[in-house]
Amino acid sequence: MLDHFGYVVTVLLMVAGLFIVIARGNLIKKLIGLSIFQTSVYLLYIVPGKLIGGTAPILSPQFSVYSNPLPHVLILTAIVVGVATLALGLALAVRIREAYDSIEEDEILMRDQIANSNEGMNA
């Protein structure tokens, strides 16, 4: 169990994040869940790449244990993507709040249904 501590944390975060996205109706909370879900993936890549006591891959007789730098670089990109997604999601939430006056999914759906039925009556 302790050997796989990193993986256990990863999976817990992954499942918790996905659960929040599915179970919560508040648009902001959904985005928080999505961020947690995406963050867990950062761990999935970085944890196996790090060796305890390992150093950066510098060619030198003093060092013999290296950590793999590639996962870190990949995740740097993934973090940028995550930030962009979160920013866009929040921007959409602001616009939705302006248009619907609510950020609760069920209220938004209800307002859409009312709008739809009005549309049908006018026609």
């Binding site: 996905l18 996205v21 648009l27 959904k30 985005l31 999505l34 879900f37 995406q38 997604t85 866009l88 999601g89 959409l92 939430a93 616009r95 939705i96 248009a99 619907y100 938004i108 859409d112």
Partner: peptide, 14 residues
């Protein structure tokens, strides 16, 4: 369109 985009953002990101 906003809610459609939001919904797609969530599902697409997952």
């Amino acid at each position: 369109a906003l809610t459609a985009a939001y919904q797609y953002l969530i599902m697409g990101s997952i």
